[in-house]
Amino acid sequence: MTETVKIQNLKCGGCAHTIKTKLEDLDNISNVVVNNDTDEVHFDYSEASQIATVVELLSKLGYPVEGASNPITKKAKSFVSCAVGRMNS
């Protein structure tokens, strides 16, 4: 099955690289595509419960889904994730 979530704080390819790498590390999550133009993350999953796991991980990385709380701490985490993604891409 495929899911698309719209996220906050997505800035660049560094962000996208971090998101793609971290989500693909999860069991049964594959074909992760991050679209910087639309702030969307597309992925394939096998069980509905995995969507919540993805949403939780995105939030921990600093990219909460649209409509979720986005305090300054989440924004700061996204800058760290972005920098890490730039260094590792």
Rank of each mutant, 00 (worst) to 15 (best):
C82G: 02
M1V: 10
N28H: 15
C82H: 01
N36L: 14
N28L: 14
S46G: 02
S69K: 15
L26W: 13
G85N: 14
T4S: 06
I51N: 02
V55D: 13
S78H: 01
D44E: 06
L61Y: 13
N88Y: 10
V84W: 06
S69W: 13
I51W: 03
H17K: 15
N9R: 00
G62D: 03
N35F: 01
G85R: 00
N35S: 08
V84R: 09
N31L: 12
E66N: 12
I51A: 01
D39T: 04
H42C: 03
K22Q: 09
T18M: 12
I7D: 00
S81H: 07
S59C: 14
Y63D: 07
N35C: 04
K74G: 05
V65S: 12
S69R: 11
G85D: 12
T21F: 09
C12V: 07
A83I: 03
T2C: 03
I51S: 02
H17W: 15
T2Y: 05
V54H: 04
K20M: 11
C12E: 11
N28S: 15
K6F: 08
L57K: 10
K6T: 13
V54C: 07
D25P: 07
N9A: 03
S30C: 03
S30Q: 05
R86A: 09
P71L: 09
F79M: 12
H42G: 02
V5E: 07
T2Q: 13
K75A: 14
N28E: 15
A76Y: 03
R86P: 06
K22N: 04
T2P: 06
S81V: 06
K11N: 12
S49M: 02
M87A: 15
T21R: 12
I72C: 08
G67Q: 05
N70Q: 12
Q8K: 10
G67E: 04
S59R: 13
N31R: 12
Y63S: 06
E47Y: 10
N35T: 04
M87F: 11
C15W: 00
T21S: 14
N70P: 12
V84S: 07
N35E: 02
S78E: 08
E56S: 08
V84C: 05
S78I: 01
D25A: 11
E66F: 09
G14M: 07
I72R: 10
T2H: 03
R86Y: 09
G85Q: 12
V65Y: 13
A52F: 05
L10Q: 06
E3T: 11
G62T: 02
N9T: 02
L58W: 01
K11E: 11
G62V: 00
S30N: 03
Q8P: 07
A83F: 05
H17E: 15
G14W: 08
S46A: 03
I72T: 12
A76V: 04
M87W: 11
L26A: 14
F43M: 02
N36Q: 05
L58S: 00
A68Y: 14
G67S: 05
S89W: 11
M87Y: 09
D44Y: 01
T21A: 13
S81R: 06
F79D: 11
L23A: 01
A83H: 03
K77R: 07
M87G: 09
F79G: 11
M1L: 05
I51R: 04
